[in-house]
Simulated assay, not measured.
Amino acid sequence: MLVRDSEPEERRAPRARISDVAQALGLTKATVSRALNGYTDISESTRARVRHKAAELGYTPLSHAQAIRTGRARSLGIVLQVGDQDGQRPFVADFLAGLSSAASAENWTLTVATATTEEDMLATMGRLIDERKADGFVLPRTKVADERIRMLRRLSIPFVLFGRTADPESCAYFDILGEDAMVLAVRHLHGLGHRRIGYIGGGDGFYYSAVRSAGYRTGIEAVGLPFDPAIVGGGAYTVDAGMREADRLLAADEPPTAILCATDMCALGVCRRAMALGLRVGGDLSVIGYDGVPEGAWSTPPLATFEVDSRVAGLHLANLLIRRIRGENPADLRETAHARFLDRGSAARPMMSSAELREHVARATGRRSERRPDR
């Protein structure tokens, strides 16, 4: 037997419409619509009034209707290259949290996809564009010559770089000034008393690697030290590669008493190799990295490094991309910041001279030193 409630079913209040917001403010529906979508031809004060009134009336646009009307999915896209050894593993969670948080604040969504190769990445981005699942893209880890930029330029799709590139035409970006960090690191090591400061660069072709290498050269010149290619390595962005390059630099006729690395993973490899040779990191050999990966805090001694706030970077990039999609000039959407130096135990005053270090490495590896220690 069916028993009906004694009280009549409460009727749902009618949904607020854009016309209700327009009528309450004495504006046209077109003006309200453009204000809610962030168009810059509507003044900021009017946009704020419209947002306030819409919230007061409980008006929210239907996403599918808005997509049809504006041609936008209100979605930011990012494709992560998961098969890349020099990938975003240490930072991806915080980075995506920042992107998502900033997108949500504007009632946008974040579409995340993965790819294993550069070709796969381009194909995935093309599919997201064709299926209208992203209005624009965040491009992390930019290259000096980047095929993603070429493709998006050709298709007139908005994008923002986490990094920079050789040709900044039509590029909005947010970047951390890695070159300034390298200058600071060289000055710091020089101030501790190091006069043989080596350097190991990052991944070939990436813009961050180019600018950090340039920063090292600038720092060396600034403190009056000669540039010596014998104590400069490159292409090392893993622990194994860092160990390999450390062997090469420490085998030099005048090995470095300090090694500056473009990435933390390389720096951790240098530390591992130094300890295997019986060297005390932060005493016999100083090491500084860049990135602020969690592993560095737990190494022995803790790794001196430059920390990047990935969540804040995500917030900046999402806001810049939304503004770019809304039509702002990319030349007006370029921001930079500095990494924070974590002065930890792996960088200290030298306890060995370069000559003493050479002799120690020669004994540890069974090689005969070709030179006598400096007197």
Rank of each mutant, 00 (worst) to 15 (best):
V3G: 09
D5N: 08
R15L: 06
R17G: 02
S19G: 09
T28I: 01
T28R: 01
V32M: 01
A35P: 02
R47F: 08
K53C: 02
A54K: 12
A55I: 10
P61H: 05
L62E: 11
S63H: 14
S63N: 10
Q66M: 03
A67W: 05
A73V: 10
A73N: 05
V79S: 11
D84F: 12
D84E: 11
D94G: 05
D94L: 01
A97Q: 11
G98I: 00
A105R: 09
E106M: 13
A115E: 04
T117E: 00
A123T: 11
D135H: 03
R141M: 15
D146A: 06
I149Q: 06
R153N: 12
F159T: 11
T165D: 09
C171L: 01
F174N: 06
F174T: 03
L177G: 11
E179D: 11
V183F: 10
L192T: 02
D204W: 03
D204H: 04
V211C: 05
R212A: 01
G215D: 02
G219D: 02
I220F: 11
L225M: 04
I231P: 00
G233W: 01
A236P: 03
A241V: 09
A246Y: 00
A252N: 06
E254Q: 15
T257M: 05
C261H: 05
D264W: 06
C266H: 06
A267G: 02
R280L: 14
G283I: 13
Y290T: 02
V293A: 09
V293Y: 11
W298M: 13
S299Q: 05
F306C: 11
V308D: 03
R311F: 04
A313E: 00
A313H: 02
L321S: 03
G327E: 01
E328L: 14
N329S: 13
D332W: 05
T336S: 12
R340W: 05
G345D: 02
R349L: 14
P350V: 01
P350Y: 04
R358W: 04
H360L: 00
R363F: 08
T365G: 05
D374Y: 08
R375I: 06
R375Q: 06
R375Y: 12
